[in-house]
Computed example of a mutant assay.
Amino acid sequence: MNAIIIGCGYVGSAVAQHWRNLGHVITATTTTQDRIGELQKVANQAIVLKRCDEETLQTILQNQEVVFLSLAPTANHQVDSDMYEETYLHTANNLVLTLKHFPNIKQLI
């Protein structure tokens, strides 16, 4: 299985490690370049995804079979309602729009 995990904090990283140990090909995303090295230990590929816009999502969803959405607002910033709206609502809306172009992808949320 080719799977992408959008949001590899604690939960996403644990899922990535588990699935990789089962032999699946895992792409992990993070919002910071500093975490790439850490994620390369639990995933086959790690990429920085600053914003889940439709164009970027179309690029990273190529050849994926499963999407696992596991995200949260950035912990090292003061979290406010706008950050929650952008993190959850905007990401979910853009993902739904993008997934229409990939009918074979299974959605795990």
Rank of each mutant, 00 (worst) to 15 (best):
H90V: 01
T91K: 04
T59C: 07
I4Y: 01
V96G: 01
Q58A: 09
Q58T: 11
C8R: 03
E38S: 12
A75C: 05
I47T: 02
L69E: 08
I60R: 09
H24G: 12
A43K: 06
V15E: 05
T59D: 11
L69C: 09
N76F: 14
A16W: 06
Q33D: 06
Q64P: 05
G37Q: 11
E86R: 15
Q33P: 02
G9E: 09
P73V: 10
N94W: 02
A14V: 13
E86D: 13
I47M: 02
Q78E: 15
T27G: 10
N44T: 08
D82M: 15
C52Y: 04
L89D: 00
I26D: 12
Q78S: 14
V11T: 11
A75G: 07
G37Y: 06
H18T: 15
A28V: 10
L95E: 01
V96R: 12
L95T: 01
T29E: 04
K41E: 09
V42Q: 04
L61Y: 07
T87E: 01
T74N: 14
K50H: 11
I6G: 06
G12M: 04
Q45L: 08
Q62D: 09
N94A: 03
L22V: 06
Y88G: 01
I5A: 02
N94I: 07
S81K: 14
L39Y: 01
A3L: 01
V79E: 10
E38C: 05
Q64N: 09
Q45C: 05
I47F: 02
N93H: 10
S13M: 13
T30H: 01
A28N: 10
G23F: 06
I26C: 12
Q62M: 08
W19D: 11
